[in-house]
Design a binder for these strands. Structure first.
Length: 365
DNA sequence: GTATGCTTTCGGC
DNA sequence: TTACGGCCGAAAGCATAC
């Protein structure tokens, strides 16, 4: 029994690259793909930018006006996001990638894990060739570059893919795993966020190597059995998570920027009722009901608040959703005295409702 | 002491 | 000088159960 061979394929600066492919004449300029909020000419944020723009200081999440300031001396291209189109392109590329894998797992719109243990007969010697073939195919059929990381599991493949991009290929053989991982900062591991990083720093754990040589029993005492064990294994590049197709999303949410900052409940509801209707339409389409309703608000000072409630009995009714959303915004307003800038709605705890459950069951039978 | 489940916040893309 | 989206899952924090 040989080990697994896993690739992580990550499309480079995806939205902006798709725009370059759609209109090659912009390729040699900074390209900035933006979400315009509609509040004023340039209000909104940068979704992603090509590497020419990045080199000039443009970053994801940055205000559009700031990106324009950084590019004021060059001929740059600013485009609105076209999610429907990116979704279509993504679906076609994912279908192509699926063909090159024994097992396949899409992660978000621009990433996928390909288990290629059988295709490569478990050999890291032949995987470079296969990875090059995947890159060439994506390039030939979709005129898009991607970066690929290869390792003996998902954890290592993910870290590998980040090492060289864009248009990169990084292969970490099983015997190289610890040498490559140990010098990296601990927060490169999934599961280590700001708080955990700080907690680890207090224990003098800064790199993955520090984590690996830390006593496993002590880790369990500090972080609990589950997390402690996970951190210990992850530091050694050990990960048994299978590569498998993901189910449907666990939550559906919509958020929108208000015309102006306000604390007026009816003005907020006017906007969020529409969001509820969109979410409800999605639920009908997918045949899901929800158990939890949540709202979120970005306040005048850009701080974020959220409230949520779960129901004993699940529902897929629009009125239930709207009523809960109203109640939650009342609560949020009563607990803060800032004006609201953006307002959002989320449903989670999703499950197929009975009707489509029966249809699904009879379909399987 | 650890697991579990819920709510809220964080962070990547 | 300032400037500020939308969506998702992960992380964190807390209460309660075991």
């Amino acid at each position: 029994m040989t080990g697994r061979v896993i690739m992580l394929v990550d499309f480079d600066y995806f939205f902006a690259q798709v725009e370059e492919t759609r209109n090659p004449s912009i390729r040699d300029k900074p390209v900035v793909v933006c979400v315009y909020s509609g509040r004023s000419e340039d209000s909104g944020a940068v979704s992603t930018a090509n590497y020419i723009a990045r080199k000039l200081g443009v970053k994801s999440g940055m205000p559009i006006a700031l990106a324009k300031a950084k590019l004021q001396n060059v001929e740059a291209v600013f485009l609105p996001v076209d999610n429907v189109f990116y979704e279509e392109v993504s679906e076609r590329i994912m279908a192509l990638l699926r063909n090159s894998a024994d097992n396949f797992e899409q992660v978000g719109i621009d990433e996928a894990y390909l288990e290629v243990s059988q295709k490569t007969k478990g050999s890291f010697e032949s995987v470079a060739e296969l990875a090059q073939k995947v890159k060439a195919e994506v390039k030939a059929k979709h005129n898009l570059t991607c970066s690929i990381g290869v390792g003996p599991n998902k954890l290592v493949a993910k870290i590998a893919a980040d090492i060289q991009k864009p248009d990169g290929l990084t292969i970490i053989k099983p015997e190289q795993v610890t040498v490559v991982l140990f010098p990296l900062p601990v927060d490169r591991l999934i599961g280590v966020g700001t708080k955990t990083k700080a907690k680890m720093q207090a224990l003098r754990i800064n790199t993955i190597g520090d984590l690996a040589k830390y006593d496993a029993q002590r880790l369990i005492e500090v972080f609990g059995k589950n997390l402690g064990l996970y951190f210990h294994n992850a530091s050694l590049g050990i990960d048994d998570e299978p590569v498998r197709e993901r189910g449907e999303a666990e939550s559906i949410s919509r958020i929108s920027t208000l015309k102006e900052d306000t604390r007026d409940l009816s003005a907020i509801l006017e906007k969020v009722d529409g969001l509820c209707e969109e979410i409800h339409a999605d639920l009908l389409r997918s045949g899901h009901s929800f158990r939890t309703v949540g709202i979120s608000a970005v306040m005048k000072d850009m701080s974020i608040r959220s409230r949520s409630r779960s129901f004993e009995n699940r529902s897929s009714k629009l009125e239930v959703l709207k009523e809960a959303v109203k109640e939650l915004f009342e609560k949020l307003l009563s607990e803060s005295d800032l004006e609201v800038r953006r307002a959002g709605v989320k449903v989670s705890g999703l499950a197929k409702d009975e009707k489509s459950q029966r249809q699904l069951t009879s379909f399987i039978e």
